[in-house]
Structure formats: structure tokens, C-alpha cells
């Protein structure tokens, strides 16, 4: 569904992505892990077209995304830190997004309802706590029923209940055959949701395989320990 080909990106002297070749398929829940600054967010932003790669290509449904924007109709994105126009109210944000993106046949407002956001519709964005902003971001990502969900540290800042609601939603999306790409530092979550792990190390794909394969290779029972083992190994090389 999404394929990258020798993807490279530098910011000035900083070489962030050094040739990424991966393929994500529908029905997968991929957990992208890596140290801070290993290029996770850059990779996601490249797929979203927010950052333009220096070299290489990205294909969504076998079509190159260069110079295209319509492919984003199929993507729902939840940023790590959501930035919204400060003097707009929550309700206005939702109305505006629906107005700007009229591509959804069926809107998926279940997250919005579960988070009870309609009660806060009159609250301006600048008065929201970090967690509520994250709830807005999550609801917006799922709102248009996209085939691909890209969630950058989705549960960071959410209270346990809200995080649980989101996790259930992600597992439901997987059962509907959607592709979900998550970056997360919380290993128990990776264990709960992901079926595939992608480990980025200094701008390269160090490990990309299913969770079962990961456990088999490292001989560990827990995903967290298995990943820690890989991380240590890669640091020694």
C-alpha cells in the first residue's frame, strides 16, 4: 500500500534518512521505533508530503506521491504535537475540516463521541490542555474513515482511559483491513497493538519484521526485551 524506495533526506549537514526501503501493506499495524532523532517523524512527514525527500520515491497504491496531493484523501494523520489555529473553537475546527475535505462517504465520529468533544465545542483551542488537544487530533485522524492511519506518539499525553479508547479504535481499524503506522516509545503498547516492528537506527532500517519473528530471533518472550536486545546489538556494531 505504501512503499518507499531509497528514501534520503538531509536537513543541512544532518543526514536524517539514509536510504529507506520499506513496504507497508493493508491490514498491518506497524510500530516504528528508534532513538530520539532517528528519523521516525521525518519518515512520517515524508510520507505525508510535509517534508520533501532529497532522493528516492514514495508510492501510495503504486502511484508516486511526487507532485500529487489527492493521495492524502486516504490518509489520516495524528501529529505528535497538534498545532491548531489558536483563536478557533473546537467545533469550528471540526466544521472547517469537514468543509475542506469533502471526500468521506461515511464520517467516523465515534472517537469524537467517546471523547465527548461535542460538549467542548465552544472552547477555543488555546484554552485546551495537551491531552484534550491530542483527543482532537485523534478524532480528526479517524474522522474521514481513511485507509491509512499515521499516528505519531498517539498515546503520549492522553489519560489512561482516553489511551485505552484509542487503542481499541486502532485494533478495530486493523480488523477492518486498514494500515496503521504508529511511532511509540511505550513497549507495552507495541506489544498490544502492533503485528510488525520497524526499527530505525541512525536513518536506516535496522530491523523490519513481524512481532513473532522478532521474538523468535531474539529468543525473548516480551517485545520490550526483544527490542532492547536489538537496540543494544545495533549500538555495538
Amino acid at each position: 500500500m505504501i512503499r518507499t524506495e531509497r528514501l534520503e533526506k538531509s536537513f543541512g549537514k544532518l543526514h536524517v534518512l539514509k536510504g529507506i526501503d520499506v513496504e507497508f501493506k493493508a491490514g498491518q499495524v506497524v510500530s516504528v521505533i528508534g532513538h530520539n532523532g532517528s528519523g521516525k517523524t521525518t519518515l512520517i512527514k515524508c510520507i505525508l508530503g510535509m517534508v520533501l525527500a532529497d532522493k528516492g520515491n514514495i508510492y501510495v497504491d503504486e502511484k508516486s506521491i511526487a507532485g500529487d496531493f489527492r493521495y492524502r484523501e486516504n490518509i489520516g494523520y495524528m501529529p505528535q504535537i497538534g498545532h491548531y489555529p489558536e483563536n478557533m473553537k473546537i467545533g469550528q475546527i471540526f466544521r472547517m475540516m469537514k468543509d475542506l475535505r469533502k471526500n468521506a462517504d461515511v464520517l467516523d465520529e465515534s472517537l469524537m463521541e467517546e471523547y465527548k468533544l461535542s460538549e467542548l465545542f465552544e472552547k477555543p483551542m488555546h484554552a485546551l490542555s495537551g491531552g484534550t488537544t491530542q483527543k482532537v487530533s485523534a478524532s480528526l485522524a479517524f474522522l474521514f474513515n481513511p485507509k491509512v492511519l499515521i499516528l505519531d506518539e498517539p498515546t503520549a499525553g492522553l489519560d489512561p482511559l482516553a489511551a485505552e479508547i484509542l487503542k481499541t479504535k486502532i485494533i478495530e481499524a486493523k480488523s477492518k483491513g486498514k494500515l496503521v503506522i504508529i511511532t511509540s516509545h511505550i513497549m507495552s503498547e507495541v506489544e498490544e497493538m502492533a503485528d510488525t516492528v520497524m526499527y530505525l537506527y541512525e536513518g536506516k532500517v535496522n530491523f523490519y519484521n513481524s512481532v513473532t519473528e522478532l521474538k523468535k530471533q531474539t529468543g525473548e518472550e516480551k517485545v520490550g526485551k526483544a527490542i532492547a536486545k536489538i537496540m543494544k546489538e545495533s549500538a555495538h556494531v
Binding site: 505525508l48 508530503g49 510535509m50 496531493f69 489527492r70 493521495y71 492524502r72 484523501e73 490518509i75 494523520y77 501529529p79 498545532h83 491548531y84 489555529p85 489558536e86 475540516m97 475542506l100 475535505r101 471526500n103
Partner: peptide
């Protein structure tokens, strides 16, 4: 000041 708004729009199916 509209930078956040622009950031929000860039991830949507809207051309730059």
C-alpha cells in the same frame, strides 16, 4: 501566526 493553520492544511488533501 497562521503557520499552525498552514501546517494543519499541508497534511490534508489540498495542494500547496
Amino acid at each position: 501566526n497562521a503557520y499552525q493553520f498552514i501546517e494543519l492544511l499541508v497534511a490534508q488533501p489540498i495542494s500547496r
